[in-house]
Amino acid sequence: MSAAGSNPSGGSSSASGGNAFTFECLLRDQGNDVDHVQAVVAEALEKHGYNDKSRWAIRLALEEAIVNGFRHGNKSDPSKAVHFGCRIGDAESLFDVRDEGPGFDPDTVPDPTEDENIEIPSGRGIMLIKAYMTDVFYFKPGNHLRMIYRKS
């Protein structure tokens, strides 16, 4: 995997930690940069034997996490970036997404499946991340999300 300095900026990868694949970069553009990260991750997952269902789940969770970082964390401020990092191994993978916003308390997000919220058109991203990832952690002040996916 090339770590050439095309967008997203600062992309770097290595095969440290046994045969685990690591990659980190700074995302500035919600379109192209996210596509690039998804392509890099998809290739690494395939090489490490993640099946279609796993790759689909991880893609969705990453999409939701990064979009939340841009939209809710950075409030779509173009001067702010989303920091992405991952370590993809044969048995499990770790993904970090950190925005440059003030953070939030994930426990205050209303449950979108409750009757009174079901017709509100937002608030499902975190729920999907939790549904598809094995473990999800928010580091205080809440602008840093860590997601772990273990092969079942």
Binding site: R59, E63, E119, P121
Partner: peptide, 16 residues
């Protein structure tokens, strides 16, 4: 093949 929560939000708005 893929759809995000933002797309679900749009579908809810369409339904309403």
């Amino acid at each position: 093949e893929h759809l995000s929560s933002a797309a679900l939000g749009t579908l809810i708005t369409v339904n309403n």
